[in-house]
Design a protein around this nucleic acid. Structure first.
Lengths: 164, 164
DNA sequence: TGTAGCATGTAAGCCGTTACATGATTGA
DNA sequence: TCAATCATGTAACGGCTTACATGCTACA
């Protein structure tokens, strides 16, 4: 794949469980990987445009497999601005707090729809079994989060201001 | 609070929905905030040890409130090494894949227990209403994640190697 | 013909980390 | 007495971003 294509792929799928890197980083990392003989590059000329296409080397593949099988797996890290603000909900205007949570529910629906399209696109081919499992995980995750925040909104509606 | 205490607080609670900053960053940020008149520092001498205690200023409080109420709230970002590896599950040894997922379920239980202790410590005081809501959210989140991964493990057990 | 998308890169800089450096206090 | 914890900071550096810079190609 080209650097450009890798970035598109990352924006489409990787972003659901990792940060999608900037274009510039994709190119720098590819250069680094070429230097380490993890990937090889080949230039293609079509018309006046040069396109550099990368493919993984045997060394790169072995390294990847070694990393997957041997290294410890870190616990996920989360940066959750909605939870962070809710923590200080007492300092927020009640309607602003509610609209933030409603907005989050809407955003979750958008993300879920995007991810569902990815899942559907994968089909039921054996070759995409694991990517499909990850996508399904993500869909379940969005469903759970949506349920939690919806219930939270109802809880807040029940006690509109400070009660008593 | 002192920088040291803030770091402890972050390690105990903030880490569940944000990255807990390094000690050094806590001190640098506090310095910056003092420079911006967002917080004020006062030195306390007890014996030979100097302890610098910080408190928020009126300006800092207003800024915080303004940020909470007016700014847009970003969608959460996640770095999920387990999902990342599962995506390439086809390149992993089946037992390594399974043990990774089992380990993750165990880690989730540990995190959940830590968070439950935080929730319990908050009690049902009105003053801690919002922190309590955030903690409960986290508990629900861990429960959902645990259920999803447990189901995933069963799905994988059902189809041990490539079927067909 | 002009704009969106394809395509590749460099430079500056921010955010946050680890490593380094120092010393007091408490309790086993 | 010695290890853990309290307590504060500086320096170097890594990872990643935004801004800058350039040019081709397809299509409305």
């Amino acid at each position: 794949m080209t650097g450009y294509e890798l970035k598109q792929r990352a924006d489409k799928t990787l972003r659901f469980y990792w940060v999608s890197p900037a274009m510039s980083q994709v190119y720098t990392e590819l250069d680094r990987l070429v230097g380490q003989q993890m990937v090889m590059a080949s230039d293609e000329l079509s018309g006046k445009r040069r396109t550099r296409r990368y493919r993984i080397t045997a060394l790169g593949f072995e390294s990847l497999q070694g990393w997957l099988n041997s290294s410890a797996t870190d616990f996920p890290t989360l940066k959750h601005p909605v939870a962070l603000k809710l923590l200080m909900g007492a300092l927020m205007q009640p309607d602003r707090l509610r609209s933030m949570l409603k907005q989050y529910v809407d955003d979750l629906a958008v993300s879920r729809a995007d991810l569902l399209a990815v899942r559907t696109g994968l089909g039921d081919l054996e070759a995409f079994r694991y990517p499909a499992l990850v996508a399904e995980w993500g869909l379940d995750y969005y469903d759970a989060e949506t349920e939690i925040v919806t219930a939270l909104l109802e809880k807040l509606a029940g006690l509109p201001e400070r009660p008593g």
